[in-house]
């Protein structure tokens, strides 16, 4: 048994028109096996219509330690949210 299979991240689109969402990860020896494993592990209860698998090592992630200077500056800039417009009554479904 080989414990050194690479880790893959799994993304599933639950139905057409929606985007793929991260659902978890798994081990597989290559991308084809990762797809099959993802089908067997993550779509047993009709969770999806499409699967993406990506090698976890190929994902560049932001450092949680950088969160203070990456994301917090946006917190006091409420003017960036589109909440200051008067929406005409005629416009529905906004």
């Amino acid at each position: 048994m080989n414990n050194n299979w690479p880790l893959y991240e799994v993304f599933i689109r639950s139905k057409n028109g929606l985007s793929h969402k991260h659902v978890g990860s798994l081990h597989a020896s290559d991308a084809d096996m990762a797809l099959e494993n993802a089908r067997d592990v993550y779509t047993r209860r009709s969770e999806g219509v499409s699967i993406w698998v990506v090698k976890a090592a190929d994902i560049r992630a932001s450092d949680p330690g950088d969160a203070s200077f990456l994301f917090e500056p946006a917190a006091d800039k409420i003017y960036r949210h589109p909440t200051f417009y008067d929406v005409p009554d005629e416009v529905k479904h906004m």
Binding site: M1, H27, N37, D40, R44
Partner: peptide, 12 residues
């Protein structure tokens, strides 16, 4: 199963 993923696959 030899690994968790195949354990689930084969029992599926």
């Amino acid at each position: 199963g030899p690994i968790l993923e195949q354990d689930i696959a084969i029992t599926n």
